[in-house]
Design a protein around this nucleic acid. Structure first.
Lengths: 349, 349
DNA sequence: CCCGCATCTGACAACGTTGTCCAGGCCCTA
DNA sequence: TAGGGCCTGGACAACGTTGTCAGATGCGGG
């Protein structure tokens, strides 16, 4: 994605086009303004004859109700905002879709934006959405301080954090069991005889990355294996860096015999590197991949259910709006270990 | 994605929360309404001292400008709508992200919705977006009649169709060269000695599917190969159907020796089926896949550049809004044949 | 024939912002 | 010191809709 010049989110320029309003319709139909409103909204108390005249005028003028004005009057926008990291990431597509589906079921539209993992951009987006008066906000946090949302939440904007917890405020959040999933995945490798197990993850300032790392450490400790620094790579997930990290831990006198990959972006690079190795290196990856079962060997993964996460978050959001909920809660969804071969390879010393 | 109950897109319920308005800020700062507006919008003509007082009041009250009201007044929403088929589809993620990026560069937000390939839902969504007075609309059509948009376009809503052309109206559209790409892909198989080549595509009522089929036929005709009905499957792309179709054309006395797969959903199933076959069957697939190069053999694909398509469409949309454009145009973006092995397999008769 | 009631309709204010325009105060100059 | 111009600030209308409320109309019964 190319860097595009930034311009503050806001309005500019002049009015485009000229649309008929209810007033125009009323004039044409020879009725009052409110009668048009009644017809448009299907309210009772309009004679069939009057309704027909109004409907005709509507059709003739191509009138369409202006929901902006409606929003202003009613105070609700019937739209929710979704701030995520990158819509192009295969993990967020299904998540976003699930949120949209729930929103749709509640008659709401979805506005979304990508933070590109930039806390400032996350804040800018979230506040822009609040300025639009979205009824609720689903946020996949990039930053770790969300106090800027306090006035919004106080003002009634329903808010659910997803994938990573909110920072420095008390709010609903829906997470995967990153710790448990990673621990299970690494334990799986241990169970297949591995002791020198590498971990390649994202920057630990990202909650999921930190939790998965913690899971890795826990599993190793459970197995009584002291972890060596050379086995861990915690940093950016660009292919170059991951490749170097992988190659490094696969070389030397005591190379790792298995790798635990911390997320889907890391995984694709790791798979490439492993495919180039002479010896077979075991792999368990966090996040599922579309063709994981067709590779040789199939990739054993710790799968998150992105759709379930999105659905849960959105449902909770609307529960907040319904007033069903009282206290913020932290919901952790389980992960699922799917064995396909790569995680069951024995150590090749 | 589970089917969710439908509810018409619209507003309901009562106002949530109570937010401070400019009036409140003005009262607290002891200034006039318009002065607050000036400060909020960074307009000139306010003494530093007054500005400070206003800013204090804003911070104290947690005021945030209500963009709904602003929209109503200014007539522009600084938001564009994107109607696509399914956000969870890996082809649309990058496309959506590219549109968002361009929108962001123009200070606009992106509202998007999935049509789920349902024409009614497409229309419902598009009109809901128009009611929100989006400045522009990027549509990946599900239906083939878009006359319902005529009043909107006349009223000044910029509109660009993507991936498939508009139906029965004259509008900008940005497409891949589906015909050329498919023709090239099939010709590639012919060049490697194949004559019995299967085609598994989507329903021909979908423009891209029809074009790719046309490309297939053209390439076969170029090669002087009469196409047999048994070699073609044109229907839904659910795994079951695709699997049956593939297995059918791979059996019998004169099975196909190569398959051209019409889109990414078809491809994943076809790959599975081919992997189960005793003999090696060549494959060229329309649409690239994330791990295509890591499979055995690597999958030869005709790749579309989803990001470029999205970017082009969005840029054209904003050109419409700038008044730079005059007549609707049809833009076709080239595809790219990427050889990775599966398309270069010789026929195994 | 008139009253009461039910039904239908429309005038008007309000939502929160921005654009227009004018008032008042200040400073500078004659 | 009076007059003119400039700068700051505010009153008011307007954007297009919906909620409130009261007026108009029609009909049946007393």
């Amino acid at each position: 994605m190319p860097e595009t010049p930034r311009r503050p989110v806001g309005l500019s320029g002049t009015r485009y086009g000229n649309r008929p309003t209810m007033k125009d319709v009323a004039a044409r139909a020879g009725v009052g303004l409110k009668t048009v409103s009644r017809v448009v909204n299907g309210e009772p108390g309009v004679t069939p004859e009057t309704e027909r005249r109004v409907q005709e005028a509507i059709d003739a003028l191509g009138f369409r109700r202006n929901d902006s004005a409606r929003v202003l009057r009613k105070g609700r926008t019937a739209s929710i905002g979704l701030v995520l990291e990158d819509l192009a990431d295969p993990f967020y597509g299904p998540l976003s879709r699930a949120v949209e589906e729930v929103a749709r079921a509640h008659g709401a539209l979805l506005i979304n934006g990508s933070s590109a993992e930039d806390p400032d951009r996350e804040q800018e987006l979230a506040l822009a959405l609040c300025a639009r008066r979205v009824d609720g906000l689903v946020i996949i946090p990039a930053g770790d301080d969300h106090r800027y949302l306090e006035p919004e939440i106080k003002a009634g904007v329903a808010t659910v954090f997803v994938d990573r917890p909110a920072g420095r405020i008390d709010a609903d959040c829906v997470l995967s069991d990153n710790f448990g999933g990673a621990r299970e995945g690494v334990a799986h490798l241990v169970a297949h005889g591995h002791r020198r197990i590498g971990f390649i993850g994202d920057m630990p300032r990202i909650h999921t990355a930190a939790e998965r790392l913690r899971g890795y450490r826990a599993a190793m400790e459970d197995a009584g294996i002291p972890v060596e620094d050379a086995w861990m790579s915690l940093g950016a997930t660009d292919p170059g860096r991951v490749r170097r990290a992988a190659e490094e831990m696969l070389s030397g006198p005591a190379p790792v015999t298995a790798v635990f990959s911390g997320n889907n972006r890391v995984t694709v690079t790791v798979i490439r590197v492993l495919a180039e190795q002479a010896r077979r290196v075991a792999l368990v990856a966090f996040d599922d991949l579309e063709l994981a079962d067709l590779l040789q060997p199939g990739v054993t993964v710790v799968a998150q259910d992105a759709a379930a996460i999105g659905r849960t978050a959105a449902e909770r959001l609307f529960q907040q709006l319904d007033g069903t909920l009282v206290a913020p809660e932290r919901i952790e969804l389980p992960t699922r270990l799917i064995t396909r071969g790569s995680g069951e390879l024995p150590p090749a010393d």
